[in-house]
Design a protein around this nucleic acid. Structure first.
Length: 574
RNA sequence: GACUACGUAGCUCAGCAGGUAGAGCACAUCCCUUUUAAGGAUGGGGUCCUGGGUUCGAAUCCCAGCGUGGUCACCA
């Protein structure tokens, strides 16, 4: 394993600690009776508070001045300054706890426990005067050091690749990241409270499904050995929740991790979270009211106000939200009333508006394209769009009065869909026809068409009450509620291409080639970190390179002969 | 999938009329008992993403690949 200079220094420090009889990774319960933020908000000079406190956390900065030092300690809530004075922690003759252990063997990143009392420095900073400290865990890798003054950040750790691959570092170093995920969880908690207060039952349904349904998407496929069968990771849980409505629950919901085998971008992660809710004896109008109430509550719970800043916009979730039918929205943004048009007229409108369509698209798809291009991006404040074309909605109930449409709505916010809901289709014969239309699309090559689920139809045939259903994208909503520009910012471990680790040969492998151990690190540094690379090397070039490195590192070892080098490479010494 | 930008020290970045690799932070040594993004001095640390090509000579120019971001396409 190749270690940087700083890593070697830390490992040496680790060994020295052990030699001093200090366990660098002790176990036990370490009492903590305060937190950083609590102290910073409550402490006042002369208040008599916090005279004997214990804290644990990570060292994030050190300013050493001879026999005293200031340390930045970070716990789960924030940072506080510590003051460590040599003669306080080393009252006797032996000053090694300060001079050696603290000054030389501790580093930024180490996790420590401290005990002391709070005071305020001459600079006015609330600080803990440390009487006692203990190392809880030694850190072997240098942490990026981010500094800040007057809200200006210096050397910010912002490379997205490193931030997402090493989220633990991101969380240590960027306090706003922790904040985003706390808000996300508060959002989920807020929804759960809202739904539980109404008596709906939180359930769990299968993630591994023999048939994937409930949405139009390509699935991930897997295999179960004992059952000798193909299974799919769910793309939605809709059909299972509706089975539960058939079963007699009158309100069920699930926070569902769903999986779709499609492209990734700043709005799509292959695994994402939806909350789906189904309530019997209700319709989509009723569901709109529920969504308004729930999202308004979320904004209030997270921000204490209904107004949320998202990018350039201030979005206000206060009820009631604007409502448009899809036809009204299109007329509003384009001035064209398409409600009575046939497919030919729609095609003309599309080309007139510069909306790209192709011959395979039917009426519903064309309308959807026009809406997606001309309306959706401009809907910034939360808006309900209702009454979608039937072709696009194979699981939604026919509109009670408008032919060709279904009782469906989406809430659009910041130019993006945040939820999708309908009066659920509960007519089993109609549902069978819709599935068959989907099968036809599949036969024509649509890879995302739905598959026919006989068991689901059987359930509907037993009778499902009129039901309102809702799917709400948790990641998308979290992006809005935390003002995050990308889905990766609201998923702790977003999907990334697997990190390729460079293969590095062990010392034994080098030695097996007859290479003296002193040369092994030199060879690695010269670029031959794997013996295969070494075997391919040109012996003359290698020989010269070794000579150079020997000089550079002032090595006291004899230079190998050309013959020896050729032997390492398994060449005849000709 | 297409286009585009980027990939240099642990971190943030400079260097690109091709000529021996730089800064700040971090790290090491020494001096400093209330400092604060950075006290002072000195010093160490690089397969300049990988592989080819052009060239006497490539971090720099060209090609390919890998990785990441952005835009577009796809994703109701």
């Amino acid at each position: 394993m190749h270690l940087s200079e700083q890593e070697i220094i830390r490992r040496n420090a680790l060994q020295e600690l052990i030699n001093l009889g200090i366990d660098p990774y002790p176990t036990g319960v370490f009492p903590v009776n305060a937190s950083t933020t609590e102290i910073l908000t409550n402490y006042k000079a002369g208040s008599g508070l916090y005279e004997d406190i214990s804290l644990a956390g990570r060292i994030m900065g050190r300013r050493i001045m001879g026999a005293a030092a200031f340390v930045e300690l970070q716990d789960a809530f924030g940072r506080i300054q510590l003051y460590i004075k040599r003669d306080d922690i080393c009252p006797g003759e032996d000053k090694s706890l300060y001079n050696t252990v603290f000054k030389k063997l501790l580093d930024i990143g180490d996790i420590v426990w401290i005990r002391g009392y709070v005071f305020i420095t001459q600079m006015g900073e609330t600080t803990i005067h440390v009487k006692e400290f203990k190392l809880l865990a030694k850190s072997l890798r240098p942490l990026p050091v981010v500094k800040e003054k007057d809200d200006k950040v210096f050397d910010a750790f912002m490379d997205p690749e490193q931030r997402y691959r090493q989220r633990y570092v991101d969380l240590i170093v960027n306090p706003w990241v922790r904040d985003i995920f706390i808000k996300r969880t508060r959002m989920v908690n807020s929804m759960r409270e809202f739904l539980n207060a109404r008596g709906y039952l939180e359930v769990e349904t299968p993630i591994l499904q023999p048939l994937y349904g409930g949405a139009a998407a390509r699935p991930f496929k897997t295999y179960h050995n004992a059952l000798d069968t193909t299974l799919y990771l769910r793309i939605a849980n809709e059909l299972y929740l509706k089975r539960l409505i058939v079963g007699g629950f009158d309100g069920v919901y699930e926070f569902s991790k769903d999986f779709r085998n499609e492209g990734m971008d700043r709005f799509h992660n292959p695994e994402f979270t939806q909350m789906e809710l189904y309530v019997a004896y209700k319709d989509y109008y009723w569901m709109m009211d529920l969504v308004e109430q729930m999202v308004e509550k979320i904004a209030l719970d997270i921000h204490g106000t209904t107004q949320v800043k998202v990018g350039e916009h201030l979005i206000d979730f206060q009820r009631p939200w604007k409502r448009f039918t899809m036809f009204e929205a299109i007329e509003h943004f384009t001035g064209i009333d398409i409600s009575e048009m046939d497919e030919k007229q729609l095609r003309e409108v599309a080309s007139q508006l510069g909306v790209e369509i192709d011959d395979t698209m039917g009426k519903g798809k064309i309308i959807d394209e026009i809406f997606g291009e001309k309306c959706e991006p401009y809907l910034i404040q939360p808006t309900f769009i209702t009454d979608y074309p039937i072709e696009m909605s194979p699981l939604a109930h026919k509109h009670r009065s408008k032919p060709g449409l279904v009782e469906r709505f989406e809430a659009i916010c910041n130019g993006k869909e945040i939820c999708n809901a309908f009066s659920e289709l509960n007519d089993p014969l109609d549902q069978r026809e819709r599935f068959e239309a989907q099968l036809e699309l599949g036969r024509r090559g649509d890879e995302e068409s739905m598959v026919l689920d006989e068991d689901f139809l059987r359930a509907l045939e037993f009778g499902m009450p009129p039901t309102a259903g809702l799917g709400i994208g948790i990641d998308r909503l979290a992006m809005i509620m935390t003002n995050s520009p990308s889905i990766q910012e609201v998923i702790l471990f977003p999907q990334m291409r697997p990190e390729k680790r460079k293969e590095i040969s062990s010392d034994e492998e080098y030695e097996a080639l007859g290479i003296p151990s002193v040369w092994i690190p030199i060879l690695r540094q010269a670029g031959y970190s794997h013996i295969e690379a070494l075997k391919k090397a040109n012996p003359n070039a290698l020989f010269n390179q070794l000579g150079g490195l020997r000089k550079k590192h002032k090595l006291e070892v004899p230079m190998p002969t050309m013959d020896e080098v050729r032997k390492w490479l398994a060449l005849d010494s000709a």
